[in-house]
């Protein structure tokens, strides 16, 4: 048993998602090595070395990895994976893009979004938008696994003192290139790690009405999310989407405003500790599963909620 964790990082810092993947790997047993693949990512590698329980950090630092293009990163992971029985990554869009490419290069069937590690070869994962949980046993000589971060605690970011080892770069595949990005800027906490999330749905009616949610969020230190319908309608950017095909969140408190509670939305927030629904339709399916339901017009209830938080 030996584990390689593919770190999610921005060059200087290790993203919290990585810490959850470390915990998942520890549940399988064996040593934990973290791979930091990037360009100018020395600081991130140093940060990875401090994660509690990590025994080694492998760093591949080269220009072709800068934008995490799968065609360039996958060969680097394949090369590093040689001496490991398990390769893990948090199920971020970056890893979802790269890891199956790695798996196929290794002729391995990947195990996506595991939510529990029963043994080194037995894992649980949700299927059908979380309506069922499959327990699968792997007979692969190498296991390629992505981890649903909300299902595992974060390992401590400090406390370790792993050795950092540089590995050779694998070169530019010359198949793809980065052009531009539109990053959603926000001072609020990250959706997937916030303790409180308030999400708006189609019931919000317009993008500017999300201001009501931002005000509540700022009083609570919360992140703001959305249903697919709200994103499709252009009220908020795509990275706000919570659900089966968006982000998965599990905060202490999730407040759904003007969201009906479709199974695909539910899939992304049902593991929240406490769920509140504000909806004017008492028949909305979300009321059947929310811990606290308020049947009200959101245009009255949300400003009132904000006022009550002073």
């Amino acid at each position: 048993m030996s584990n390689l964790i593919i770190a999610e990082h921005d060059g200087s810092e290790i993203k919290a998602a990585t810490l959850h993947a470390v915990t998942a790997a520890q549940a399988a047993g064996g040593d934990v090595t973290v791979a930091v693949i990037g360009s100018g990512c020395g600081a991130a590698a140093e940060a990875a070395a401090k994660i509690a329980g990590v025994s080694k950090v492998l760093v591949a630092d080269s220009a072709e990895y800068e934008k995490q293009l799968a065609e360039n990163v996958a060969p680097a992971i394949v090369k590093m994976a040689e001496s490991f029985s398990h390769v893990w990554a948090p199920a971020t869009t970056s890893a979802k893009n790269t890891m199956p490419r790695v798996a196929a290069l290794l002729d391995v069937q990947q195990i996506s979004e595991v939510t529990a590690v029963q043994s080194a070869t037995t894992f649980e994962r949700p299927i059908y938008a979380g309506n069922a949980i499959a327990t699968v046993e792997s007979a692969e000589s190498k296991n390629i696994i992505t981890v649903r971060t909300t299902a595992f605690e974060a390992a401590a970011a400090e406390g370790g003192s792993a050795a950092v080892e540089a590995v050779d770069a694998t070169g530019d595949a010359g198949l793809s290139s980065f052009i531009r990005e539109e990053v959603t800027e926000s001072d609020r906490p990250e959706l997937t790690s916030a303790k409180i999330v308030i999400s708006g749905g189609r019931g919000m009616g317009a993008g500017e009405n999300f201001d009501m949610l931002y005000k509540v969020a700022d009083k609570l230190g919360a992140a703001v999310g959305a249903s697919r319908a709200a994103v499709d309608a252009g009220y908020v950017p795509n990275d706000y989407q919570v659900g089966q095909t968006g982000k998965v969140v599990a905060p202490d408190l999730y407040i759904a405003v003007g969201i009906s509670g479709a199974i695909q939305h539910w899939a992304g927030m049902k593991d929240s500790k406490v769920i509140v629904a504000i909806n004017k339709d008492e028949e909305a399916p979300i009321f059947q599963v929310a811990d606290y339901g308020l049947v009200a017009d959101l245009f009255d209830a949300v400003p009132e909620l904000e006022g009550a938080l002073d």
């Binding site: 971020t92 869009t93 010359g174 793809s176 290139s177 990005e181």
Partner: peptide
């Protein structure tokens, strides 16, 4: 144009 965790990313592929 790809939908990613941080927003949108545009790449060019052969």
């Amino acid at each position: 144009t790809r939908e990613v965790d941080s927003g949108l990313e545009t790449i060019k592929v052969n």
